[in-house]
Amino acid sequence: MVDVAHGKPAEFAGPAPSPASRLAPYALPIFLVLMIAVAGIISPAFLSANNISNMLLQAAPLGIVVIGQAFVIILRGLDLSVSSVMATSAVIATSFSGQNADVLPILLIAIGIGVATGVANGLLVTKRSVSPFLATLATMIVLQGIRFAYTQGAPSGNVPPLFRTLGSATWNGIPYNIMLLVVLAAVFWVLLAKSRFGREVYITGGNPTTARLLGINADRVTIVGYMISGGLAAIAGLVLSGYVGIVDNWVGRGFELDSIVAAVMGGISLAGGRGGIIGGLFGAAVLIVVFNAVLLFGLPVQFQIIIKGIVIVAAAAFYVRRSR
């Protein structure tokens, strides 16, 4: 017998995929829809236009960080410095006169610091063979110290109105920051999924030795990946500063873990070489929905921490199961 569809003997066609295996790639989106439905049944206010708009406002900064974190994790790394880059960008946003004329220099300085942090992380990982955990932890602490020395522990100043608009305003109910997230996601999805550099990222993350044998400069690819993560974290910090309005030295705290958890939940492998930006963004959406539901149901904010821990354990267990 011949398998007509594939032109090979039927005995080699393999068993038909089970319904569960067919649904596996869509497990997270299905889970997200079910969570939203359940939350809406428990509290109709959850599905109100105001609450949905508020969730989108909160999701944009995390989503921007997740895009950069996706590149790093696919390259077998992780970036703990993103939260410190975000806080530093927020402090820079309030270090000028607070007028829109300062937006361009703020952007250039903030993104420059983020990219420079990424270069430092990449060099430590590739040239000095420092583990990504220790390398990015070190740059996080260094940035934190510089930030505290600069602000004397108490940042002051106003965020330019343009950042306030970008971070907290809406157009016909659609937040401007979610529009920015969509644009960035589209640009970096094309870069990762359709470009030569994207193929080099997956090959390097899958097996750096193979990448070198194929003529790929694995060190350069890794450094660029960290630069992307740092630059996007800087942008996320500026967006978040516009959302919160009042800046302190801890803006963005927790985003380093949240972005890693979102990426892993979205199917990005900690072993490198697998996953994509869209999955990571779905993971971020799950976290935002969970955190919002906790507050809307009137539970103490401490439940967010407990649930975050449970989500981390579940994501780790899911990752191990998928690897097997």
Results as ranks from 00 to 15, higher is better:
residue 214 L to H: 08
residue 212 R to L: 08
residue 228 I to Y: 02
residue 226 Y to N: 06
residue 179 M to D: 01
residue 266 G to V: 02
residue 207 N to F: 07
residue 211 A to N: 07
residue 249 N to W: 13
residue 228 I to G: 03
residue 256 E to L: 13
residue 190 V to W: 08
residue 253 R to T: 11
residue 193 A to H: 03
residue 237 G to D: 09
residue 184 L to I: 15
residue 227 M to I: 02
residue 209 T to N: 06
residue 251 V to S: 06
residue 223 I to N: 05
residue 243 Y to F: 13
residue 224 V to K: 03
residue 254 G to P: 12
residue 248 D to K: 09
residue 252 G to Q: 08
residue 207 N to L: 10
residue 187 V to G: 04
residue 179 M to V: 09
residue 259 S to G: 09
residue 239 V to P: 00
residue 263 A to F: 06
residue 264 V to I: 15
residue 213 L to I: 00
residue 196 R to S: 13
residue 225 G to D: 10
residue 188 F to N: 03
residue 197 F to N: 00
residue 247 V to M: 08
residue 180 L to W: 08
residue 180 L to S: 10
residue 226 Y to R: 06
residue 200 E to L: 02
residue 193 A to V: 02
residue 231 G to E: 03
residue 238 L to W: 08
residue 230 G to E: 14
residue 198 G to M: 11
residue 227 M to G: 02
residue 225 G to S: 11
residue 204 T to I: 10
residue 211 A to M: 11
residue 266 G to N: 06
residue 222 T to L: 14
residue 199 R to N: 15
residue 202 Y to R: 10
residue 265 M to S: 02
residue 193 A to W: 01
residue 234 A to Q: 12
residue 183 V to F: 09
residue 246 I to Y: 14
residue 184 L to F: 12
residue 194 K to L: 02
residue 243 Y to W: 09
residue 212 R to D: 12
residue 212 R to C: 09
residue 232 L to S: 07
residue 230 G to D: 12
residue 180 L to C: 12
residue 255 F to W: 07
residue 256 E to Q: 14
residue 250 W to D: 15
residue 236 A to P: 10
residue 235 I to S: 02
residue 242 G to Y: 08
residue 245 G to M: 14
residue 255 F to L: 12
residue 231 G to P: 03
residue 251 V to A: 12
residue 205 G to D: 06
residue 244 V to K: 11
residue 264 V to F: 14
residue 225 G to P: 06
residue 227 M to T: 04
residue 200 E to V: 03
residue 186 A to I: 15
residue 244 V to H: 00
residue 212 R to V: 09
residue 188 F to T: 02
residue 257 L to D: 11
residue 258 D to A: 08
residue 183 V to N: 05
residue 259 S to Q: 05
residue 259 S to P: 05
residue 180 L to H: 12
residue 258 D to C: 00
residue 189 W to C: 01
